[in-house]
Write a protein that binds this DNA or RNA. Structure first.
Lengths: 219, 219
DNA sequence: AACACATTAGTGGTAAACCACTATAATTCT
DNA sequence: AGAATTATAGTGGTTTACCACTAATGTGTT
């Protein structure tokens, strides 16, 4: 099987870091580093010349951030693959990584051959994620699970209460919910109060707030 | 390089489907199918005997669902890898896939060799996602982006207004926000009103509701 | 039969958020 | 210098949501 050489552009504001990536990728004969850029403007200039297959991109850069740059690239060049490098386990960026058009999310703290692995995975049309990042997410979910076990309120809710909670999360007011169920406004208020008791929460907009914080818990 | 044989368990309630997966995987000498199960209980029994490396798991099953099963497996056996097969593009499951402990998310509509690909990717310690699923997510993000462009309100917000919106999203009340800024309650109320005008929203809890619906848009 | 619980509905009150204004000082842009 | 915007602060009023009760009806359990 004859593979096409992958043409790669490295975008990072630290020359030493670029050097590091280069030395890792150089060993692979299927990879050709065709350019480097120290900031987003340089990167865009280079990309406009065409030819780039994969971009290895640092998140933290002066000026335009890696995320903004990747959005821009993906909107202009659908076929360019983007590998994002970052220092931090940023959940929000990871959660939106696909929507940002990213093809890989790599933590800099990880082993050097991560980059090489990622290049092959994304070139194969797949999404790559640093194992330590997924590890972290799993850990986080364990904590959340524990939290859910400590707050057993959710599973004590009746079907009707769950339905109401669901409608609240869809931005319906108590009155609207009452109307759609053909019951009194006061009935729904009672349900809300009961739900709050079961969930052990109180205060203004307590339920709406609870939903924001526990969206994942409800599914 | 001598690879270890991957021992696989297939869990699906349709025997014909299991057969299909088997015939695909059989061609690979590095893979050994050591068992099949038609439901979650059977699967758990088999797993308890040890030996399983990777589980190929159907989401839709009578009784315990694939998600519940995978949570259970991951909590007991940290090292077993799970490949989830599903009929539908279920965003919610995908978004929580890592928290559920999944290692791959494959759509049944995809080509048969997806499963084979996924086995290798997850065995390599990486997360695998059906390209058509990521395609779908990107498409969805394009729509969302378009929506954001049509509602240009967000980028018209001043720094202070963004700060306030952020604090609202952190469940702080108007009074709390006022206190932390050492300004009057009424000032923050004015800011809220201005934000609402810019975002073209109105009604009770409008801002909190807006945040729920546009969480991704704000980042 | 007695009990727990869910669902229904009510009274009366408080707090938070929103709505529609007005108004002033500071800043920024032209 | 003048205009627009931002940040500040206020009056007065409405709606929504929460809080603390009471209470009737039905349903299912023991």
């Amino acid at each position: 099987m004859m593979e096409k050489t992958k043409k790669i552009l490295i975008v990072d504001d630290h020359p030493l870091f670029r050097k590091g990536i280069k030395s890792v990728l150089q060993e692979d004969t299927g990879i050709e580093i065709i350019g480097e850029a120290g900031n987003s403007a340089e990167a865009l200039n280079f990309i406009d010349k065409g030819n780039v297959d994969i971009i290895i991109l640092d998140l933290q850069m002066p000026g335009m951030s890696g995320i903004e740059l990747s959005k821009l690239i993906k909107s202009k060049y659908k076929n360019i693959l983007i590998i994002l490098l970052t220092m931090h386990k940023d959940e929000r960026i990871f959660n939106n990584s696909l929507e940002y058009g990213l093809d890989a999310y790599i933590l800099k703290e990880n082993a050097v051959d991560e980059v090489l692995k990622a290049v092959h995975v994304v070139a194969d049309g797949n999404f790559y994620l640093s194992p330590s990042m997924s590890e972290y997410m799993i850990q986080k979910s364990m904590k959340q699970k524990k939290l859910a076990d400590e707050n057993p309120g959710i599973k004590n809710l009746t079907e009707k209460e769950k339905e109401i909670l669901n409608m609240i999360s869809q931005n319906r007011t108590t009155r609207e919910i009452a109307e759609s169920f053909f019951v009194s406004y006061k009935t729904i208020e009672n349900h809300r109060a009961n739900i709050c008791k079961k969930l052990n929460i109180s205060g203004c907009n307590a339920l709406l707030k609870f939903i924001i914080e526990n969206k994942t818990l409800l599914s």
